[in-house]
Design a protein around this nucleic acid. Structure first.
Lengths: 247, 247
DNA sequence: TTAGACGGTAACGTAACGTAAGAGTCAATA
DNA sequence: TATTGACTCTTACGTTACGTTACCGTCTAA
């Protein structure tokens, strides 16, 4: 049971920050009768998690979302964080290389294109990719892939067929309106399919987010558009409408 | 000669950011008759520098201060930035270790103290480094940079030449004794130069402190040793002797 | 000549705290 | 017992580095 100051000096963050985290409900310790905050071991653990995420430049809101989820798993998170930090380290390495290259270039020893001059400095790329994934259900995706891996070959085949069937149906109608009855029926099927087969229930908001990811994450876009160009966009719109209507 | 959008896509930063950097005077390109910003190769180079500093989480004001200095040297900066990025990488490494340790601990395989739980997460480290610098000489530097900014390009050039001349002279004799007549004469020139050109009078004690900073602050060390390895150390000793003798 | 891509400024919004200000609490000490 | 100093609280305004929106001018290709 530690008071704010103690926690602050232990962790190197400010008292104000602890207050703030309490205020936004990110880390709300119990209080004693006199109103003083007291942090348990568990709170410290949670704070550690928060700081790991913050080291990855996650916005606090997202941290809160992640940690508020009922299926949040401490150990999983640690592994995930470690991997992300490795990636961040790699990015720094890239920047360092760019600097070295620039030094050579400045000394006149090496040519350098404009593009090369900004290698690794692009924040948006890496950021969005990770954010989109985490925000919109990476955990669900991970979980689902685990589940899928435990199936037999036959069962996998059946699942794949269902996937294809739904995608193909959507592809055939993708030039129409995403709000049409036809489209909404197909999307409903999609929603049911996801909820029934991967041990995870998508809320309508998560479903909407998933659709957004199809457009945001180029990997998903590419994947989906194999069934028909523009399908990812169409699905996002249709899923959006679906989420609105059934709300 | 590139327009904003082109620069934005090239570097991965937003148009708004470029506007903002112009607004605060951090990166102000020329404009055409219709008011459009056009970025030269030189501007791109400067932007690259800015992004390197930003990768180190330097606040923009400080970046501006650094780059506005009359003795700002592109190459020196690159070396410095590289070193800092290495340090940042090391800090990430420390955090990764902490996570690994925590994983062991969570699995019950290892004990872990509270302090260990927050290893590497302390931001203040980086802070101190920068703060120290402010304490020593940034004030004087600020004052000087204001003065310097009011000079013409030619005058700035002359100033830079003087800088280089003195440094080079000291570099040639840096293997001798810092108390030699030759060394003391050069240091005297240095002392006069500083006092005459930056609207700020160094007391002998401040001058001695300045010398110490050359050794204490890796930034200055790096900067100075560019003219010859060990020059910073030599200058500190010589400045120390100078302060003692003229006291 | 008109649409669409791109340019500009102005102005308000946001995130994550920093920084007082004013007041209560607690433990040690005079 | 009174005081002091370190600590606590809440409230509230300030700051940085942009994002976002609105509204308008410019340029180029069809």
């Amino acid at each position: 049971m530690k008071h704010v100051k103690e926690v602050a000096t232990l962790t190197g963050i400010s008292v104000r920050t602890l207050h703030y985290y309490d205020q936004i409900g990110l880390l709300s310790p119990e209080t004693t009768d006199n109103g003083y905050r007291v942090y348990t071991e568990e709170d410290l653990e949670k704070l550690q998690q928060i700081l790991f995420y913050r080291a990855l430049d996650f916005p606090l809101k997202k941290i809160k979302n992640i940690m508020d989820r009922p299926d949040f798993n401490h150990l999983e998170a640690l592994y995930y964080q470690k991997e992300c930090l490795q990636q961040k380290k790699d990015r720094l390495e890239t920047i360092i290389h760019t600097i070295e290259h620039t030094i050579q270039h400045t000394k006149g020893e090496q040519p350098m294109t404009d593009k090369e001059k900004f290698n690794g400095l692009d924040f948006s790329n890496n950021h969005y990719e990770q954010e989109a994934r985490e925000k919109y259900g990476e955990e669900a995706v991970n979980r689902s892939s685990q589940k899928v891996n435990s199936l037999s070959h036959k069962e996998k085949e059946a699942l794949n067929q269902s996937f294809r069937r739904i995608y193909q149906k959507l592809a055939t109608i993708r030039h129409g309106s995403p709000a049409s009855e036809e489209a909404q029926k197909a999307i409903h099927e999609w929603y049911e399919f996801l909820n029934n087969n991967f041990g995870y229930h998508y809320t309508l908001e998560a479903f909407r987010g998933l659709g957004q990811m199809y457009v945001d994450d180029p990997r998903f876009t590419k994947n989906i558009d194999q069934y028909g160009e523009g399908l990812a966009l169409f699905m996002r719109d249709a899923m959006n409408v679906y989420a609105n209507r059934n709300n």
